[in-house]
Amino acid sequence: MYSIGNQSLVFIALTLAFLGLILVYQASYQALKVLPDLTPVGPVFIGTMVRVFGPTVVALMLATRVGAGIAAETGSMTVTDQIEAMKVTNADPVEYLVVPRFIASIIMMIVLWVFGVLVAVAAGTLIGTLRFGIQLRTFLSLSGTTMSDVWVALFKCVIFGAAIPILAADSGFKATGGSEGVGWATTKAVVHSLFTVILLDFLISSIAYRFGW
């Protein structure tokens, strides 16, 4: 768990900071064109960050960072027959390798979501106040965020956090044929988990919308 979180921290901070910067930049720029009023930028940005971009982008990054890592590790264990060796000694590779990563991934997903949103909001606030001169108090407002945003986001985090290690470990276990096989497995893990995150995100968002959450 420590390794899943720690490795990803700098990575998530970097990508989410740039995401926060760009979202506020674009929102302010577009708002200036349509309505010359920048007061809704902050609340709308924070609300969207919590509900939409936070879980999605953090999950995409986690899929890239951790999914690839899990696939690379289980993949190289598979091609070097270590998985077979485990089965021989009666240690269930799924229980031993996947279950701990599964639980760690769900917890880390939630933690990193909070962390990612905070970093993005901090970066967004920076550009919003300094570049576009929005009042700090106007910008940092939770009026655009509801409790249902938080619940939907939390639900997404749990689902994404669960999906990534399963897909990654599955690709890893199916690796065959030396270093090339491990490369393939890692590639597959990244593509599958990125796509699955986007697909699940769409499904959850649509259902949430229909029920008016």
């Binding site: 690839a68 993949g75 270093s179």
Partner: peptide, 17 residues
């Protein structure tokens, strides 16, 4: 093999950044 897996991982992470 382990090195290739790790390189792929580093590659996608760096690309994302």
């Amino acid at each position: 093999a382990r090195g290739v897996g790790r390189a792929v991982n580093d590659s996608v992470v760096t690309s994302a950044i």
